[in-house]
Amino acid sequence: MPRTIAFTKGHGTGNDFVIVADPDAEIDLTEDQVAVLCDRRFGIGADGILRVVRSARTAEGAATPAAEWFMDYRNADGTKAEMCGNGVRVFVRYLLKAGLATLAPGESLAIGTRAGVKTVTLSEDGFEVDLGLWRREPDVLVRARGLDVARPGQGIDVGNPHVVVALGSLAELEALDLLAQPILDPVPPHGANVEFVVPSDPLVRGAVGSVRMRVFERGVGETLSCGTGVAAAALAVRYWAGDGAPDRWSVEVPGGTLGVRVRRDADGEHVLLSGPASLVFSGEFSLA
């Protein structure tokens, strides 16, 4: 017999999600069910699903006991993902709206993810999430429809894998056809999101660097925004710029603008992502 389940639709700079509250881990969504719900013609339509579950109620959440809530994030094709920078901000927005958590300006909330515990702070422009330590990965050769030749891509890990490709002009960025998945050589062990970036000219204004970006997300396709991809893009351009590059960045994506900053802690460089998160509407669906 079909089961009726409540949901809320939310987005962060156009990167949209179906949010399902399941505090006691009673809903087991299959990959096929997630894919149907995320289908933009036959389902609700989204880039992914955020299942809101108490960490203590799931085996994966048990690895993040410092966080009361665990973000079970699934890509639009149903596959599991380690983290989502836009998704975690939308996740916290939902917790506050639903009365499941409280957060005053400047305070932080711990959220469990498959990439560990992430702290989210209420900020002037929405929420800022500490994505944690980042690291460079090996270069990857990237072929994409609309590029005349393969381009080198910088591997960046911010809790999930990314490959960042620098382009020479906005015209080249706009000419990309991201309906086709870019081809990576070699293919990273767990795949990767691929970001195509064009640094601004001048690159830095008022001690803030800026770039424009488009992204192809693994398991989804092109999206209007990718939070961890924005962080990876800023980190790659900062690395390419060399000594003296700023620690603050503004990244423009088709869905809006997000902020990135690098903070030096005792354990190394942390990358932080800031931006808005919105809840759009709520409803119900029947789960066969």
Results as ranks from 00 to 15, higher is better:
residue 3 R to I: 07
residue 3 R to V: 09
residue 4 T to K: 14
residue 4 T to N: 11
residue 8 T to A: 13
residue 8 T to P: 04
residue 11 H to M: 05
residue 11 H to I: 07
residue 11 H to E: 08
residue 12 G to N: 04
residue 12 G to T: 10
residue 14 G to M: 10
residue 15 N to T: 08
residue 15 N to G: 06
residue 22 D to N: 10
residue 23 P to S: 09
residue 25 A to N: 15
residue 25 A to S: 14
residue 27 I to Y: 10
residue 28 D to T: 12
residue 31 E to S: 13
residue 32 D to C: 03
residue 33 Q to V: 03
residue 34 V to M: 08
residue 36 V to S: 09
residue 37 L to C: 04
residue 45 G to N: 09
residue 50 L to M: 09
residue 56 A to N: 06
residue 58 T to R: 06
residue 62 A to N: 10
residue 64 T to A: 13
residue 69 W to I: 11
residue 73 Y to A: 11
residue 73 Y to K: 06
residue 76 A to W: 08
residue 77 D to G: 10
residue 80 K to P: 04
residue 82 E to A: 15
residue 85 G to N: 09
residue 93 R to K: 15
residue 93 R to N: 12
residue 98 A to M: 06
residue 99 G to T: 11
residue 101 A to F: 11
residue 109 L to T: 04
residue 109 L to R: 02
residue 111 I to L: 05
residue 114 R to C: 01
residue 116 G to T: 03
residue 117 V to T: 13
residue 119 T to M: 03
residue 122 L to M: 12
residue 124 E to I: 07
residue 125 D to N: 14
residue 133 L to E: 08
residue 136 R to E: 14
residue 141 L to C: 12
residue 148 D to L: 13
residue 150 A to W: 12
residue 151 R to Q: 14
residue 153 G to H: 08
residue 153 G to S: 10
residue 154 Q to H: 13
residue 155 G to C: 13
residue 160 N to K: 05
residue 160 N to Q: 10
residue 164 V to M: 11
residue 166 A to Q: 14
residue 176 L to C: 12
residue 178 L to P: 06
residue 178 L to S: 05
residue 178 L to M: 13
residue 179 L to E: 14
residue 181 Q to Y: 02
residue 185 D to Y: 05
residue 186 P to A: 07
residue 188 P to S: 11
residue 189 P to G: 12
residue 191 G to F: 05
residue 192 A to D: 10
residue 196 F to K: 02
residue 197 V to Q: 05
residue 200 S to H: 15
residue 201 D to R: 15
residue 203 L to K: 06
residue 203 L to T: 06
residue 205 R to Y: 05
residue 205 R to K: 14
residue 207 A to D: 15
residue 211 V to S: 06
residue 218 R to A: 02
residue 220 V to Y: 08
residue 223 T to P: 02
residue 223 T to Y: 03
residue 223 T to M: 03
residue 229 G to W: 01
residue 232 A to I: 02
residue 232 A to C: 02
residue 233 A to T: 04
residue 234 A to D: 01
residue 235 L to R: 01
residue 239 Y to L: 04
residue 242 G to F: 00
residue 244 G to E: 01
residue 246 P to E: 02
residue 248 R to D: 02
residue 248 R to K: 08
residue 249 W to L: 00
residue 252 E to N: 00
residue 254 P to F: 00
residue 268 G to P: 00
residue 273 L to P: 00
residue 275 G to I: 01
residue 280 V to Y: 01
residue 285 F to A: 00
residue 285 F to Y: 09
